[in-house]
Design a protein around this nucleic acid. Structure first.
Length: 557
RNA sequence: GCGCCCGUAGCCGAGUGGAUAAGGCGUCAGCCUCCGAAGCUGAAGACCGCUGGUUCGAUUCCAGCCGGGCGCACCA
């Protein structure tokens, strides 16, 4: 908000400078306004003069001079300006310019930080979408944390967001699941079976078989293989899916929609798309299979959509699924995938282009792999042998908050070491407590103030004396608070939740420093009110930020 | 071989064209009769993988190389 004020001052100034003949051109390129790294460079700084140099055909410092001389600071929020270095215009603001933010935070409360840059545009974020063939593991956890946070952040930035989970409930892996359960079921009934290598070996398969056995074991044993396997598959998939939903909900992740692959078959959507593409000539036949000319759209080679046995591939479903998404009216579709699926992007892009849409409406977020460690040593994981640490195990061991915060602590572009021992520690090594501690500390201060009747109850009554906030640490906090909305915007624009994480760490650090240096509750009534107004604003922003990441903000710890 | 991601202090890492490269861990020296020490203050530690290019300006963009991770099925 302060930035936009400054921006307007600059543009108005430039306009006026042009009218006065100080500037030759009326065209003003996009400028950056940012908080300089060093306080000696002012509160805010712009590169306006530098980016205008080529348009104005003038030296940046001269442009800066012209703009400053024509600027009209009616509200007197600028203490002074200076031209620095190659042509930066540095602004030193009056303290009152920063004081306003407290009022704003207390009136907007849990909406502070939200913006309308999204303009209500419909966006779908699809994430996790793990096959219902086994429990969720760490990698799914990272994807869940990232997808959920991105959804929250986009929503806060004014997009109309739907979170969706795609269930692969048909196809070969589901049959394999059914077969695995069927074999275990027969084992339970005393039969000696040969358990194939490509079947699922996890102990959860035995649990499912046992449950199914008591339910209707005898029934299934009577059926022939095909039917029995199908029965087992249906039961197992639903059972696992129920578990997945539970795990996700305990992880604090909820979806607006669960979409089943099977519906694409039932509605005829898949054959429809294949037929459509065939008519358009982008699908051809070779070796008894149908191929999609994805190479024409930049893929390495063409891909099969219908196998020579007549069955459609997973890719065919996915084409239909993405068509379906756009048909549902989403202007923008975002998929969150594990990085090992990156080779798939070209293909989906191809199908979107082929259907006459722009692949610019489609984003894939590739989440790099997670290395699970315990005390610095890798945790052995083998899906094949059915030995792995599940997301549920992790939530049980380290808690939802610590897990989510760690998953979002750095960019998903890099691999992540997740150390269970570290995540469990309630020490400074664990950033989640560092931030939550701020919230709890402030709660405690506010509670004490109320108990001892040091201030009126409503925060709205605290802001009258904000002018008492003059300490450098207070000004620093105010500036950080004021930048929250733009950090949310940046996070939304780049689809990177760790921007919010980094912001929260910065705010928390500034608060802890302030807390150690200055008392909030003092003998001076007005000063106490002002500081209560400040710290409770910090509390609100910490909570709003943690909310976006799906981490709780406790009153006590 | 081809494709995607990564390469910033002993370690983990922020920084998507700007002025003196965040922060954390670890190391060293300090701070609790006082609002929560899960906290704070200070010190030491960086040819931002290498070589070129674009630019007034490159850790940031481009190219090539080196190193690491992950993929390259009529599997999902």
């Amino acid at each position: 908000m302060i930035k936009s004020l400054i921006k307007k001052l600059i543009l108005d100034g430039a306009e006026k400078a042009f009218e006065q003949g100080l500037l030759p051109s009326k065209s003003f390129p996009e400028m950056e306004i940012e908080q300089p790294r060093h306080a000696s460079h002012g509160d805010l700084s712009t590169n306006f003069a530098m980016v205008s140099a080529s348009v104005q055909k003038m030296a940046p410092r001269k442009i800066a001079q012209a703009v400053i001389s024509a600027m009209d600071d009616k509200e007197k929020i600028i203490e002074k300006t200076e031209i620095a270095g190659p042509g930066f215009i540095n602004f030193f603001l009056e303290k009152k310019a920063w004081h306003q933010v407290i009022d704003k935070i207390h009136s907007e409360k849990d909406r502070f930080g939200s913006t309308d840059v999204g303009k209500g545009k419909k966006v779908q974020v699809e994430f996790v979408s793990a096959n219902p063939t086994g429990p969720l593991h760490v990698g799914h956890g990272r994807g869940a944390a990232v997808g959920d946070a991105i959804g929250n952040i986009l929503g806060f930035a004014g997009f109309d967001v739907q979170k969706e989970y795609y269930i692969n409930d048909s196809g070969r892996q589901i049959r394999t699941l059914g077969l695995s359960v069927w074999l275990r079921l027969r084992e339970l009934n005393g039969e000696a079976v040969d358990f194939p290598d490509d079947c699922y070996k996890g102990s959860y398969i035995k649990d499912i078989a046992a449950a199914l056995n008591t339910l209707k074991g005898a029934d299934i044993l009577e059926k022939d293989e095909e039917e029995a396997v199908l029965d087992c598959a249906g039961f197992a998939a639903e059972d696992i899916l129920t578990g997945i939903k539970e795990d996700l909900s305990r992880f604090g992740v909820s979806f607006d929609n669960w979409f089943r692959e099977q519906t694409l078959f039932d509605s005829g959507r898949i054959t429809e798309v294949v037929e459509d593409f065939r008519k358009k000539g982008i699908i051809y036949e070779k070796d008894g299979a149908l191929w999609f000319r994805t190479e024409q759209y930049g893929d390495e080679k063409d891909r099969v959509v219908v196998r020579n046995n007549g069955l459609t591939t997973y890719f065919a479903s996915d084409i239909a699924y993405h068509m379906e998404k756009f048909d549902r009216g989403f202007a923008r579709v975002i998929d969150v995938w594990g990085a090992d699926h990156h080779g798939y992007i070209q293909r989906i892009n191809a199908s979107i282009e082929a259907s006459g849409r722009s692949s610019a409406q489609f984003d894939v977020i590739l989440v790099q792999l997670v290395n699970l460690l315990r005390g610095g040593r890798p945790v052995a994981m083998s899906t094949r042998a059915g030995e792995f640490v599940t997301l549920r195990d992790i939530v049980d061991e380290v808690g939802k908050d610590a897990a989510r915060f760690l998953f979002l602590s750095r960019s998903y572009d890099s691999g992540l070491d997740f150390d269970l021992e570290l995540a469990r520690q309630k020490t400074s090594e664990n950033p989640v407590y560092y931030v939550q501690y701020v919230h709890a500390r402030i709660s405690s201060i506010v509670a004490k103030a109320r108990e001892e009747k040091m201030a009126p109850d409503s925060p709205l009554e605290w802001t009258g004396s904000v002018s008492g906030l003059v300490e450098p640490e207070e000004m620093n906090l105010l500036k950080i608070l004021a930048s929250f909305p733009e950090q949310v915007e940046k996070s939304a624009a780049t689809l990177h939740p760790h921007v919010v994480f980094t912001y929260l760490m910065k705010l928390a650090s500034a608060f802890h420093g302030y807390y150690n240096k200055h008392k909030v509750l003092t003998q001076d009534y007005d000063l106490t009110l002002a500081r209560l107004g400040l710290v409770s604003a910090v509390k609100t922003v910490i909570r709003n930020g943690l909310d976006l990441l799906g981490v709780s903000a406790p009153e006590t710890m």
